[in-house]
């Protein structure tokens, strides 16, 4: 019996993704009989390849939970999340969201945000290159136009606002020996690659609302008001200059002029 190619590949893919399915009809060996161990090579390649890709993108997450737990968690993700395209460099963008809903890890409340830093690191690494906004351009803006100005985020920019010290946790795991975090308080982490190196910064806590509003496209005026409402100590000039100096923006919004 001959199956048409599309049906044959559907059956193959189905058996590939479900370990409990038998070897599909028509798959055989030189002995003339199906062999589960041989078909399992393909199944194994798919899942080991995907879990390995996740382990390489989320090394701190893996260290936090241990390899055995990580592989099981990554496999649970891979079961329902196949790469949307052959670009494995993009695989796992929503793995942090999956971790957040993954019951066995629910007691590690900080885990999804640590994973978000790692996801943002890889996005920044492969993001489009762009020269960051120059402070001189900002300094040249007429004072009366500042409040209505919007900035364009740098293509590599990512902001992780966390209720946990995820920047410190991430940083501690860059070293071979991990020391416990002594100062346990919320942190907001900026990920940005102004040149060829991905930089990770903990933002001053009173500036995170401002940064988040600007990355969402708010005007400087609206972002400043939102920040002041939450943190009276907010210093607009220091925050804006600080974010610009880290390379978090690419340009002023074109419709606001002053863009070459």
């Amino acid at each position: 019996m001959t199956m048409d190619l599309a049906a044959s590949q559907t059956a193959f893919a189905d058996a590939l993704l479900h370990a409990d399915r038998p070897v599909p009809d028509g798959i055989t060996t030189a002995r003339g009989e199906a062999d589960a161990a041989r078909f399992a090579v393909y199944r194994n390649n798919v899942f080991v390849g995907l879990t390995k890709a996740l382990a390489q993108r989320f090394p701190v997450t893996e260290r936090l939970v241990g390899t055995q737990f990580f592989v099981a968690m990554a496999r649970a993700y891979a079961q329902d999340h196949k790469p949307a395209s052959p670009l494995i460099i993009e695989y796992g963008g929503d793995f942090p969201d999956f971790i957040a809903s993954f019951q066995p890890a629910s007691k590690l409340a900080y885990l999804p945000d640590v994973a978000r830093i790692e996801a943002a690191w890889m996005r920044a690494y492969h993001a489009a290159d762009a020269t960051p906004l120059d402070l001189a351009v900002l300094a040249a803006v007429a004072p009366e136009r500042l409040a209505d100005l919007r900035l364009v985020a740098h293509p590599s920019t990512g902001l992780i606002r966390s209720g946990y010290p995820v920047g410190s946790i991430w940083s501690a795991h860059q070293l071979e020996t991990v020391t416990p975090i002594t100062d346990w308080r919320p942190q907001d982490v900026l990920v940005v690659r102004p040149e060829m190196t991905v930089n990770i910064h903990i933002l001053p806590s009173q500036d995170a609302v401002f940064a988040a509003c600007l990355f969402d496209g708010a005007t400087l005026g609206a972002a400043a008001e939102a920040a002041l409402t939450e943190a009276p100590a907010f210093d607009f000039g220091a925050a804006l200059m600080g974010l610009v100096s880290l390379g978090a923006f690419r340009a002023l919004q074109p419709d606001e002029g002053n863009v070459p």
Binding site: A53, A55, Y125, G167, S171, N199, H201, L203, L246
Partner: peptide, 21 residues
């Protein structure tokens, strides 16, 4: 640009070898 001492706390990061499978 990226002058760590200016603003925020710069964290020492991984190198490019960890750039993914």
């Amino acid at each position: 640009v990226g002058n760590e001492k200016c603003y925020g706390i710069a964290l020492k990061g991984q190198n490019d070898c960890a750039a993914g499978a």
